[in-house]
C-alpha cells in the first residue's frame, strides 16, 4: 500500500528515499504520479512530498546570467512569467500546452522532465537552451547537461535515492531566437504526437529538440551555420538534423506519419524562430 512522507529538508528527502529502497517516488504536482498510483494502489510506494521542504531553491530565480528552476516551479508559474517569455519563448509555449489549466496549476517543470516521457512537452525546449540538471543524493550534488539525463522511456540517470534539485538555463546569447511546434490528435488538451523546439543563433546555427520521435527527447545541432533566408538550405539542414529521429508506431500515430511530421514541424519551428525577435544576451 502507498505511504506518504512529507520531509522538511533536503537531507531528510534523501534519507527517506534511500529508506524506501527503490520504492520512493517524488511528489510535487502529482499529475503523472497519481495517475500511476490509481492504477496500482497496492504497490508499496513511498510518496515523498517535496512541497514542505524548506531548503529547496525558489521556484523561479532569474539572475543576470541564468534562470534557475526549483522543484516547485509549476507550468502555470512558467506560463505567466513575462521575463521567461522573452528569453525562452519555446519553453513558455511548451509549458502552456501541458495538460489543462488545472493540470498546469499543479504540474511541475522538474516533474515533467523526471517523468522522462519521450513525448514530454518541456524537454525539447529545455534541451535546445542547454539546460543543466543538478541532482542531489547521499554523495552530494552533481550537475549534468539535460541531454545526458534521459536514458530511455521513463528512465533517467537519477538514482533511486537521488532527486533533481534544480534546473539551470543559461541566458541565450545575443540574437538567439527560438520557437515551439506541436502536433496533437485533437485541438483541446492532448499529449503530443510529435513536438519540436527550434533555436537559431545570430550566426545561423540551428538547434532542434525533438519530442515523441525516439526513446528519449532528442537534441541535435547543425555543425555549420545555415543561411536562414535560404529556404532550400534550411530544408536541407532540417532534413539532416532530424535524421536522428527513430519514431515508432503507437496509439497516437503511425511511424511513417510521425517521421513526416517531424520534418514539417521542424521546418515550421525553425522558420518561426527565424522570424521572431531575438533575445538580448546577458552582457547588455
Amino acid at each position: 500500500m502507498t505511504q506518504y512522507r512529507r520531509p522538511d529538508n533536503v537531507e531528510d528527502v534523501v534519507r527517506t528515499l534511500s529508506d524506501a529502497e527503490g520504492n520512493g517516488r517524488l511528489l510535487v504536482g502529482g499529475t503523472d504520479l497519481l495517475v500511476a498510483v490509481r492504477r496500482r494502489p497496492l504497490d508499496p510506494l513511498v510518496l515523498v512530498d517535496l512541497k514542505a521542504v524548506a531548503d529547496l531553491p525558489p521556484a523561479i530565480e532569474v539572475t543576470e546570467a541564468a534562470v534557475r528552476f526549483g522543484p516547485t516551479a509549476t507550468m502555470s508559474d512558467l506560463a505567466a512569467d513575462s521575463r521567461l517569455a522573452a528569453m525562452f519563448p519555446a519553453l513558455v509555449a511548451a509549458s502552456r500546452v501541458v495538460g489543462s489549466l488545472a493540470i498546469r496549476n499543479r504540474a511541475s517543470l522538474i516533474g515533467n522532465i523526471c517523468n522522462a516521457s519521450p513525448a514530454g512537452d518541456t524537454a525539447p525546449a529545455l534541451l535546445i537552451y542547454g539546460a543543466r540538471v543538478t541532482i542531489v543524493g547521499r554523495a552530494g550534488e552533481r550537475t549534468i547537461p539535460l541531454s545526458q539525463f534521459f536514458v530511455g522511456p521513463g528512465l533517467t540517470t537519477c538514482g533511486p535515492d537521488e532527486f533533481v534539485l534544480r534546473v539551470d538555463l543559461p541566458r541565450p546569447a545575443d540574437g538567439y531566437r527560438s520557437a515551439f511546434e506541436r502536433l496533437t490528435r485533437r485541438r483541446g488538451v492532448d499529449l503530443a504526437t510529435v513536438s519540436v523546439a527550434a533555436g537559431v543563433s545570430a550566426e545561423g546555427s540551428i538547434t532542434l529538440g525533438l519530442g515523441a520521435v525516439g526513446p528519449t527527447p532528442l537534441l541535435t545541432e547543425t555543425a555549420a551555420a545555415v543561411d536562414l533566408e535560404d529556404v532550400d538550405a534550411v530544408e536541407q539542414a532540417v532534413k539532416q538534423l532530424i535524421g536522428i529521429a527513430t519514431p515508432i508506431s503507437d496509439l497516437r500515430s503511425g511511424r511513417e506519419y510521425r517521421q513526416a511530421m517531424i520534418a514539417v514541424l521542424a521546418r515550421r519551428a525553425v522558420s518561426a524562430a527565424a522570424r521572431s525577435v531575438g533575445t538580448k544576451g546577458p552582457s547588455t
Binding site: 506518504y4 499529475t31 497519481l34 510518496l47 512541497k51 488545472a102 493540470i103 496549476n105
Partner: peptide
C-alpha cells in the same frame, strides 16, 4: 476519469483550480 482529464472534480486549492482527483488528501495538509 480520475486521471485529470475531464475536470468534473475541479476545486479551488489555495486559490487556484486543480483536479482534485490528482491531489492526495494528505498533500492538502
Amino acid at each position: 476519469c480520475a486521471d485529470g482529464e475531464c475536470g468534473a472534480c475541479t476545486v479551488f486549492l489555495d486559490g487556484r483550480i486543480v483536479n482534485s482527483c490528482l491531489v492526495l488528501c494528505a498533500e492538502a495538509e
